[in-house]
Design a protein around this nucleic acid. Structure first.
Lengths: 211, 211
DNA sequence: CCTGGTACCTACTCGCCAGTAAGACTACTG
DNA sequence: CAGTAGTCTTACTGGCGAGTAGGTACCAGG
């Protein structure tokens, strides 16, 4: 394949989507530096100048990928969780939505987590931006529900730890795809809500039966 | 500075240490790809051919860095924790040792965590190796202490989540250096041992007074 | 003072890759 | 059918950086 001479003429919007998809694919497999614009253009079935004409420089392209995938993911989570629920239920639906998204969008997850976090370029902004949105979401959930008035720093650091646990568990999950998303999510839920102390004693958390 | 013509003659072992230190420094700041052998040699106060003569190719050099720093860190943790203690105490000392190490060796931590996770290179082996040693350490702690017979997969995934939480919290800590290591460690300890459920109710874990 | 070995250097080669110049094909619009 | 706007290409440049060839200073021991 990929032996065609000239690509079929397509409207710009469509091409841009194709290019973005190819870019996410290549970036997720190789990382920012190792990925070459030549390869991206080849995967997209297009020539390199088109890439530059439509999406700008390599860094701009990468930043755009990050932005797009981050938005998709945050939206997936946001639609999965209903406010006005009990804190544990909110957290539970958030975790389920997160692992659901990762399971169905591995490339997105890789490009977001593994590749973007390692590069210090100008796109780090996009990434830390999304990450801190997630962190403050969790932090809000915490401060809103806790009785003991924890400091802002305390809530934030705990939220950071939780987000990191989620990321790491998602990473682990990539190596154990036989596990269903719900099971993995439930494990993390138990860890962060019940704690090892309770788990060791056999006390587990479970979702409220029905709704 | 760095305007001397010829470097002072030094025995090989000493130079190698200097070069390694410089390499860890540069790799931690720029990452594997962005770091250049020219810059490393310059920081080390030496010329490039010396680098190749002593430490081999760029990839070999990086792998050597990873190995050295990983060993240092695992040793720091191992000496910090005494077996035959209660599980929670073991975990507590492990966390304290970990955050202590990170606080005093930021460059080591960065090169281990942020830079090395860029997959694709042959050095990924060294890294995942250390990480899985850490994970199975925690997993062992878990299975050994739990009453409910958890599956191997369960323990391993929880351990992965905990390690990830530690990594993430360490990352957060880099942006909030005013917090003492002990406080950060205690927060993570509370999170993973007590869980949000207890913390929300104001129940906290604290180390056994004395010893 | 020669002989060898080890530390150390300047000054290259060479491939890869981001980015571009310059033009060719298609299609719509009058 | 001209004109013009937008899609798409081949074929380059220019620089950066890994790795090397081919030396030069320094220190033994004889």
């Amino acid at each position: 394949m990929r032996t065609e001479g000239r690509a079929k003429r397509l409207p710009r919007a469509v091409r841009e989507r194709q290019i973005m998809d190819a870019a996410v694919d290549v970036f997720s497999r190789l990382g920012f530096h190792a990925a070459s614009m030549d390869e991206i253009s080849e995967v997209a079935g297009i020539s390199k100048p088109m890439l530059y004409a439509y999406l700008g420089s390599k860094e701009e392209l990468f930043a755009t990928c990050i932005r797009r995938e981050a938005t998709r993911m945050m939206e997936a989570i946001a639609t999965g969780v209903e406010p006005d629920q009990e804190p544990d239920v909110q957290l539970w639906s958030g975790l389920r939505a997160f692992f659901g998204f990762v399971g169905e969008n591995r490339a997105s997850w890789l490009v977001l987590h593994r590749q973007a976090s390692t590069q210090g370029g100008p796109f780090a902004v996009e990434l830390t931006d999304m990450r801190s949105r997630a962190v403050s979401l969790v932090a809000a959930l915490l401060t809103q529900s806790t009785k003991a008035p924890a400091t802002k720093l305390e809530a934030e650091s705990l939220a950071a730890a939780l987000v990191g646990a989620g990321e790491s568990l998602a990473e682990w999950w990539l190596d154990h795809p036989e596990e269903p998303a719900g099971v993995v999510a439930a494990r993390l839920m138990n860890l962060v809500w019940m704690g090892f102390g309770d788990l060791v004693d056999g006390n587990v958390w479970h979702p409220p039966s029905r709704r």
